[in-house]
Design a protein around this nucleic acid. Structure first.
Length: 289
DNA sequence: CGGGACTCCTGAGGGC
DNA sequence: TGCCCTCAGGAGTCCC
């Protein structure tokens, strides 16, 4: 699922729910995530308080007292559910609200928090992970260390972009997907960004004009901001009468739109799907050059 | 260096 | 209803 906007929405939602709560204990239903969860590490965090929640790229960081950090990646299908047993109100961190949270075989890890509150980590495909780090050197963890700048930061601008792509011989889609270049973009947003920028995903970065580079940077920031405001994107529709999803999927112009008409009113092209680095590239061959 | 194939895992959806 | 095939928002490794 989750690219930068979705993880940002999760972060904001979790912040209001679990900040300053103590983790009483942790139950592992299935610890075979991308990295195997060890119960020994989980006992270390029991009794600690969640002091702060941050997002870096597509990662979440839970800062605990006693100088521990939980580094979390949601992979493709990871999501959190928050449950307040006292209020009998159930809310997910991102995808939907529920009146009732039923047990789900994909509930992999359950954090029992103070005041009968619970945080459930649910992950169908188990590509997500948790790592337990010491705050002292957590930023040297290889996941975090190699990340490029945040796309919404001032550092990610024209100067950085042009410097980075000097002597590079890659396609623009692949470089935007490369977390070392810019961290937080994934397949959906890259496809959308390139559509708005009118650049074909396969274009070599060495052949980009300055105006095109500025356009790409502009749309990266614009589209990510818009997606965050709209609550991220929810695909693989969850059908619940009281469900609440992110809304940005309604704005998709190319992602998942194979054979649909290009939404540019002065273009008669049809969206095609190609494969690039084993991922779907959606684009309009007529208006993306 | 670049990119294609393949890997982890499970489920949804299409075609027949 | 079922089976078989393809594909999925991430990201790593191996190989050419």
């Amino acid at each position: 699922m989750p690219e930068l906007p979705e993880v940002e929405v999760v972060k904001k939602s979790l912040e209001s729910k679990i900040k300053n709560l103590v983790i009483k204990n942790v139950k592992i239903n299935d610890g075979n995530l991308r990295y195997k969860l060890k119960s020994k590490e989980l006992t270390k965090i029991c009794g600690l308080k969640i002091k702060k929640i941050e997002r870096r790229s597509k990662f979440l960081l839970f800062y605990l007292n006693k100088l521990f950090v939980i580094l979390i990646h949601l992979g493709m299908t990871g999501k959190f559910f928050f449950i307040d047993n006292k209020k009998k109100k159930y809310k997910t961190s991102f995808y939907y609200y529920l009146n009732e949270k039923k047990d789900d075989k994909h509930d992999r890890v359950i954090f029992n928090l103070q005041d009968e509150k619970k945080l459930i980590y649910n992950d169908v495909r188990k590509f997500g992970f948790f790592k337990f780090l010491n705050i002292k050197n957590h930023k040297n963890n290889f996941h975090l260390k190699s990340l490029g700048p945040e796309p919404l930061s001032a550092k990610f601008g024209y100067k950085y972009f042009t410097k980075y792509i000097e002597n590079k011989n890659k396609s623009i889609k692949n470089i935007l997907m490369d977390q070392k270049f810019v961290s937080g973009l994934g397949n959906i947003y890259v496809n959308e960004i390139l559509y708005f920028s009118k650049i074909k995903p396969t274009r070599n970065v060495g052949k980009l004009k300055n105006t095109e580079i500025r356009k790409i940077i502009f749309y990266i920031k614009k589209i990510l901001k818009k997606a965050i405001i709209e609550g991220g994107s929810s695909i693989k529709n969850f059908s619940s009468s009281d469900g609440k999803k992110g809304g940005f999927q309604e704005s998709f112009k190319v992602y998942g739109k194979k054979d649909k008409n290009c939404s540019n009113s002065d273009c008669s092209g049809k969206i095609v799907r190609a494969f690039l680095n084993n991922r779907s590239a959606f684009f309009c061959p007529k208006c993306q050059k």
